[in-house]
């Protein structure tokens, strides 16, 4: 038996909304330690990795008697989650050898309980091991700022060059019709931690990435006030959105390289 009671259905809604356009079907791997989801996009350029820990406060109850994999169409899951109120408590339930995943939405005042079942899918996805890496540079910044930068620069070109150096981080685009550059300096004077821009730098990095994917990742902006960008030269960037009281959602994006 698997049963996970999440206090805020809005968190699950936001997660699925941020994934469903790049990742059509995905396996939720459930174990006693929590729920993970790993999926590559169809072009093998982007990968998402979700971790929701069972011992975090976001789960009111969590039970997983044996490891199970729940193969779900994320478009369908998004439709089901739209049936939940944002303040509803959502319970996910499945048997040990499941064909069906059940969603139960309890309204805050417990006056309305709704239940939906969806058929599970057999999804043949290759599980990848993501090596532990010490990144040359980790940028922490407000998530809405990163979203704005990606959105602004995508109007002029297809790829952004991210340049991390000791003063801060530069985002540059050069397209056929024009170019743009946004410089972010490290902030030390800002009161709120979530408004700060910090750059942990071991080595400077200059690397280009496709804006199409970065813009897609920023659909996760509402999950977190901050986003962490981890970069090393000639390796995939990690775009991490911490999820309070649950874990995190990470996106990996392969770099653009010189021809």
């Amino acid at each position: 038996m698997f049963e996970a009671k999440m206090l805020q259905s809005s968190v699950l809604k936001k997660i699925i909304e941020s994934l469903k356009d790049l990742f059509a079907d995905a396996n939720f791997d459930c174990s006693s330690s929590g729920i993970t989801l790993q999926d590559m996009d169809s072009s093998h350029v982007a990968l998402c990795y979700l971790k929701l820990r069972s011992d975090e406060e976001g789960f009111e109850d969590y039970r997983c008697d044996r490891n199970i994999t729940l193969g779900v169409n994320l478009g369908l899951m998004s439709k089901i989650l739209k049936c939940a109120g944002n303040d509803d408590v959502v319970t996910l339930r499945a048997e040990d050898e499941p064909n069906i995943l059940t969603f139960i939405f309890d309204s805050k005042n417990s006056e309305r309980v709704s239940k939906y079942d969806i058929k599970l899918m057999e999804i043949d996805s290759e599980l990848l091991g993501i090596p532990d890496t010490d990144y040359s540079c980790v940028v922490k910044m407000p998530s809405h700022e990163f979203q704005r930068i990606c959105s602004n620069l995508s109007q002029l070109g297809d790829s952004v060059t991210i340049d991390c150096h000791k003063e801060g981080v530069d985002f540059k685009v050069a397209g056929e019709q024009g170019s743009g550059a946004i410089k972010l300096k490290q902030t030390t004077s800002v009161d709120k931690e979530e408004d700060q821009v910090t750059v942990q730098l071991n080595e400077p990095v200059t690397q280009s990435f496709a804006l199409k994917f970065l813009c897609a990742f920023t659909k996760a902006t509402s999950l977190s006030d901050t986003v962490n960008l981890s970069l090393t030269q000639d390796t995939p960037v990690v775009v991490e959105y911490p999820i309070a009281q649950h874990g995190y959602l990470r996106f990996y994006l392969a770099p653009k390289i010189e021809e």
Partner: peptide, 14 residues
Amino acid sequence: NKLQASLNPFFVHK
């Protein structure tokens, strides 16, 4: 011009 790399070479297949 830059080419889009694939993720495959960066990760280990389990």
